Simulated scan of single mutants.
Amino acid sequence: MWKCPKCGRSFKNTNQDHYCGSVATIDDYIAAQAEDVQPLLRQIRETIRAAAPNAKEKVSWQMPTFWQGENLIHFAAARKHIGIYPGGQAVGVFSERLKDYKTSKGAIQLPLGKPIDYELIADITRWRVQQLEEDQK
């Protein structure tokens, strides 16, 4: 077991990648990330905001989150990628466009060092908004 010297949490793997600390706003979250990742996170935030103009911003599960009656989409920085978390159905619906990315149920990894497909993020977000609106009818 490895214990993070900063937050005190214990992990199975030494130097386990995790976020320690608590943030109140998305601005706080972005400011706490590596300088080279901050512009990417800001652009992802703006992309999601434009695609979901009625969604509210908040921090949930220690990640920037857009909320529209329920969690619409989260995003977060990791050591080697930026994670987008739109839920399990989105990964299936967009599977053809996601074939070059590592995915798991509800998660998409956008590798750092490669161009980010902001239009894909916008399309997934718009799909999630449409899905939520249909569920509310």
Score class of each variant (00 low, 15 high):
residue 37 V to L: 10
residue 36 D to R: 13
residue 36 D to Y: 13
residue 37 V to G: 11
residue 30 I to L: 05
residue 32 A to R: 04
residue 52 A to W: 01
residue 62 Q to K: 14
residue 60 S to Q: 11
residue 33 Q to I: 07
residue 47 T to D: 06
residue 59 V to Q: 03
residue 32 A to D: 10
residue 32 A to W: 01
residue 32 A to G: 10
residue 39 P to I: 05
residue 46 E to P: 04
residue 29 Y to V: 03
residue 61 W to V: 07
residue 28 D to H: 01
residue 43 Q to F: 01
residue 49 R to S: 14
residue 55 A to R: 06
residue 64 P to G: 08
residue 52 A to E: 03
residue 54 N to L: 15
residue 43 Q to I: 02
residue 46 E to K: 12
residue 55 A to T: 05
residue 32 A to P: 05
residue 42 R to A: 03
residue 41 L to N: 10
residue 40 L to F: 11
residue 26 I to Y: 01
residue 50 A to P: 12
residue 25 T to H: 03
residue 22 S to N: 12
residue 39 P to C: 03
residue 60 S to P: 08
residue 21 G to Y: 00
residue 25 T to P: 03
residue 52 A to I: 00
residue 41 L to Y: 05
residue 34 A to W: 07
residue 19 Y to F: 15
residue 37 V to Y: 07
residue 33 Q to H: 10
residue 61 W to Q: 13
residue 59 V to C: 01
residue 48 I to R: 04
residue 16 Q to P: 10
residue 48 I to P: 00
residue 56 K to L: 14
residue 54 N to D: 15
residue 52 A to H: 01
residue 25 T to E: 01
residue 41 L to D: 06
residue 30 I to M: 06
residue 21 G to I: 03
residue 40 L to K: 15
residue 35 E to N: 12
residue 26 I to C: 01
residue 36 D to K: 15
residue 47 T to K: 05
residue 18 H to D: 02
residue 57 E to Y: 03
residue 23 V to G: 04
residue 45 R to F: 06
residue 48 I to S: 04
residue 53 P to C: 12
residue 47 T to V: 08
residue 25 T to N: 01
residue 40 L to T: 15
residue 41 L to C: 00
residue 26 I to G: 02
residue 30 I to S: 04
residue 48 I to D: 00
residue 31 A to E: 14
residue 40 L to H: 14
residue 18 H to S: 00
residue 47 T to W: 10
residue 49 R to Y: 11
residue 27 D to P: 10
residue 54 N to M: 14
residue 48 I to K: 00
residue 53 P to R: 05
residue 52 A to M: 04
residue 33 Q to E: 13
residue 66 F to S: 07
residue 27 D to L: 11
residue 52 A to D: 00
residue 58 K to M: 14
residue 42 R to N: 11
residue 38 Q to M: 02
residue 53 P to A: 08
residue 57 E to M: 08
residue 23 V to Y: 05
residue 18 H to L: 06
residue 46 E to Y: 09
residue 17 D to R: 09
residue 17 D to W: 07
residue 16 Q to D: 11
residue 24 A to C: 09
residue 49 R to N: 13
residue 28 D to Q: 02
residue 23 V to T: 08
residue 30 I to W: 00
residue 63 M to E: 14
residue 40 L to R: 14
residue 40 L to Q: 15
residue 65 T to N: 04
residue 56 K to C: 03
residue 22 S to D: 14
residue 38 Q to K: 06
residue 42 R to M: 07
residue 64 P to M: 09
residue 18 H to Q: 04
residue 40 L to A: 15
residue 24 A to N: 13
residue 63 M to R: 12
residue 66 F to Y: 15
residue 36 D to Q: 15
residue 24 A to P: 10
residue 58 K to W: 06
residue 53 P to T: 09
residue 51 A to Q: 05
residue 41 L to S: 07
residue 28 D to P: 03
residue 64 P to D: 09
residue 25 T to S: 08
residue 16 Q to W: 08
residue 22 S to I: 12
